[in-house]
Nucleic acid binder design. Structure first.
Lengths: 151, 151
DNA sequence: GTTGGTGCAAAGGATTTGCAAGGTG
DNA sequence: CACCTTGCAAATCCTTTGCACCAAC
């Protein structure tokens, strides 16, 4: 629990502060994007963010969203992970879990890092590899689909 | 070791046979693509296949390669997994391992499914989720990078 | 000859980038 | 009033599709 600089309870205001400190500016667009992402539980795709933000603030360009997202990731507020559907963003504080995505029904379950600790330890032991189990999802069949589904 | 219909030692000829059985045809393009993929140890990207195949047989179109790859995947000869660099294909018989990709140096290590069995069991127990640990890579820092690298 | 396969061109979707105009501190 | 940001348009990538033409069986 030290290989990830956990940021607990970052509020919108904190983000603005983090930007200010770095000489970066808080524009209405960024405010809209930040507020959208910060209020999202779980993950959200860049496309969805674009949609939502443009909904609340027409005219915001997709490139601005992409630029802001990567900026927020550099600053440490956000992180992205790779799910079957592509990249998805979430607040860093919400990143502490492994995504289990069902390749059959598309459902998305989660595994706490605590539960996955044994794998983490196993990988470290056999390879000295310090795994970040949150970056990529783990595919497979959810309980429901693993049972019945002939198709 | 029963949830994956393992195909051991598939040879180029076998592939042609598998296609014939389904009423599909063996064209020179497919022959080139199959031979390229079948002789690849480990994984290879669609773009690389296109390059290699066109090298041996100029004029082959990328769309043909894509179509052939997904066909070979449906037939069960190939599988793809998601690494940091995107989708990568490998022979099904070479698919039985977990990819460990270092986000720092880009190196690619592997973990046998046997070694990962404990995680597989853990996930199954807690969620009834039947994981396919080969479909997505596991990111993190390789032993080397986890140690020294300040940057 | 059927029917499946291929090349080509075009269409998409997801990002990224160059730039001039505009807003923030 | 510097300098960071944005919108726009264009450029990449990667992959998929519609089609007319061609080839495998």
């Amino acid at each position: 629990m030290d290989h990830v600089h956990t940021i607990v309870g970052v509020a919108n205001g904190d983000v603005m502060e983090m930007l200010r400190v770095r000489g970066l500016r808080m524009t209405p667009q960024r405010r809209a994007i930040v507020s959208e992402v910060m209020r999202t539980r779980g993950h959200i795709s860049p496309a969805a963010i674009v949609r939502q933000v443009q909904d609340a603030m027409p005219g915001v360009n997709a490139s601005t969203v992409y630029r802001t997202l990567s900026l927020l990731e550099q600053v440490g507020v956000l992180q992205h992970s790779h799910l079957e559907s592509g990249a998805e963003y979430h607040r860093s504080e919400d990143a502490a879990h492994v995504h289990l995505t069902c390749s059959s029904c598309g459902s998305d379950d989660a595994l706490s890092l605590g539960e996955a600790e044994s794998l983490h330890a196993l990988i470290r032991t056999h390879h000295g590899f310090e795994a970040d189990l949150t970056h990529f999802a783990i595919g497979g069949l959810c309980g429901r689909c693993a049972k019945g589904v002939a198709r």
